[in-house]
Simulated assay, not measured.
Amino acid sequence: MRHSKAADVLELARRMAASAEGVSIAEIMADYDMQRRTAERLRDAVVALFPQTEEVSEWPGKRWRIRGGLSAFEQAPTTEELVELTKAVQLLRAQGEPVRAAALEGLERKLKTAIRSTTLNRLAPDLEALVRAETIAVQAGPRPTADESQLAQIRQAVLAGQPLGFIYSRPGAEPRRRSVAPCGVMFGRANYLVAADRESGRIQTFRLDRMSAVKAEEGTAAPPVDFDLQVFASQSFGIYQDEIEDVVLQITSEGADEARAWRWHPTQTVEDQDDGSVIVRFRASGMRELAWHLFTWGEQVRIIQPTRLKAVMAGELDAAGRALKAVEA
């Protein structure tokens, strides 16, 4: 068996051991980008090497899992995996997320404790060298905050299907007591609770740094049965959710290479034009955040549609001009 095939077998065994539900043939095909027969041979190789593999019959198909986990030898992390974990901790701390950084640091310590001392001694020099050679470039912007007790209450309410109560304070408005059905949390340039109004079912977002007295309440309050947090997050260019619109942008030839490599949105398409420019299309909400981003492209971008994005862009330019005049006055 070639080295790459052996690595695939071991990786699939790890996936089977890490999943309580097991792994299906369809998931193997998708994860390893292979045809069904090849996926079946890979599964058979895992079953042959790990006799404790269980077959679980579940509609509409079968799944395979390994109960009891794998040995420390089979689970030893690589240098690259440990480096990425360390960098993830550094990034969270640099972004002002000490609570989440501490959770990952705890996982890092547990992993290193579980590794045999001989293996850890072998990994240590390369790990230290790579950590010194790679760092995080922190972008300017708001520092998200997430209080440990706040996150604990949100997670309790999500897991138990309980209402979440809190006081929400917006600039220029009176603080208001809210009680919602929590759907989850979106972490980013600012951290947001995503929740459903308990009466209308309308999905709303709340900045965590504007929430206080957060507490899981008695009773039940589940999000809509068809709600998907990942789908909800991908609808917007940033965080703010409003009307979803078809966005069409033209990037000049000077910025075309960068535009092709840029991830604008999960629904994007990029079309080359005869003059060297590119047309970028996607469907999204959050026109204000998109307008803010387009400022960074300067004269290299032209808004073709929607009209509302043009209006938002013009409004932001007017606001910036008024602010500049006020400073100069």
Rank of each mutant, 00 (worst) to 15 (best):
R143E: 11
L324N: 06
P98T: 05
R155D: 11
V231N: 14
E258Y: 13
A222N: 14
V270H: 02
F50A: 04
L111V: 07
V83M: 08
K112G: 00
T79A: 08
A94V: 06
A101K: 05
Q95P: 06
A30Y: 03
I154A: 09
I304C: 03
I136M: 08
G22N: 09
P77Y: 02
E218H: 02
G315T: 09
S277G: 05
E271Y: 06
A323P: 03
V158P: 05
I251K: 04
T118S: 12
M287A: 00
D33I: 05
E21M: 12
A222C: 12
T119P: 05
Q95G: 09
C183Q: 11
G161L: 04
Y240G: 03
S212F: 11
A320C: 14
E11L: 13
Q250L: 09
R100M: 14
V247M: 00
R177K: 13
T252W: 00
E316D: 12
L164P: 05
V247E: 00
P51H: 00
S277R: 04
E217Q: 10
Q241C: 01
E218M: 00
A88D: 11
G69A: 13
A103I: 02
R43H: 03
D228Q: 10
E128Y: 02
A314D: 05
L317F: 12
R37F: 03
L12R: 02
A124D: 09
V46I: 05
A319V: 13
